[in-house]
Amino acid sequence: MVTVEQVSQQDYSLSILLYVRRALENGTETDKRSLPELWSDWQESGREFWRQMDEVVEMVVEMLDGLVQR
């Protein structure tokens, strides 16, 4: 929550990015990355997630194939 004084210091802009910063894990610093940088990092983490999911699916398929052949 911000005060009216804080909003006035921002020329009465209500842009969320002016008032909310993403806290890092240690809770003392804020993330200074730009929106394009954040977006790129988010996309990359999504690609990594799906690579890992593909590995899991391959392992499960191999396990199931082994059960069917018995």
Rank of each mutant, 00 (worst) to 15 (best):
residue 20 V to Q: 08
residue 45 S to G: 05
residue 57 V to E: 00
residue 57 V to R: 15
residue 33 R to V: 03
residue 58 E to C: 09
residue 10 Q to H: 10
residue 11 D to S: 12
residue 8 S to C: 07
residue 62 E to S: 15
residue 50 W to P: 05
residue 10 Q to K: 10
residue 63 M to Q: 09
residue 15 S to P: 02
residue 70 R to N: 06
residue 23 A to S: 14
residue 62 E to L: 13
residue 64 L to V: 12
residue 22 R to S: 06
residue 8 S to V: 14
residue 1 M to Q: 13
residue 50 W to S: 13
residue 14 L to M: 14
residue 34 S to L: 09
residue 66 G to V: 01
residue 28 T to R: 12
residue 7 V to H: 00
residue 31 D to L: 01
residue 37 E to M: 04
residue 1 M to Y: 09
residue 66 G to C: 06
residue 17 L to R: 15
residue 41 D to S: 01
residue 66 G to K: 05
residue 38 L to Q: 07
residue 53 M to R: 15
residue 17 L to E: 14
residue 31 D to K: 01
residue 32 K to H: 14
residue 46 G to E: 10
residue 26 N to K: 11
residue 30 T to H: 14
residue 4 V to D: 08
residue 7 V to C: 04
residue 30 T to V: 10
residue 60 V to N: 02
residue 20 V to T: 07
residue 47 R to K: 15
residue 29 E to S: 08
residue 26 N to Q: 07
residue 37 E to T: 03
residue 21 R to I: 00
residue 6 Q to R: 05
residue 46 G to K: 08
residue 43 Q to M: 11
residue 70 R to L: 03
residue 68 V to E: 03
residue 6 Q to N: 11
residue 65 D to H: 07
residue 58 E to I: 09
residue 46 G to L: 08
residue 48 E to F: 01
residue 1 M to V: 12
residue 56 V to H: 04
residue 10 Q to L: 12
residue 48 E to N: 08
residue 48 E to S: 06
residue 63 M to L: 14
residue 40 S to G: 07
residue 67 L to V: 00
residue 48 E to R: 07
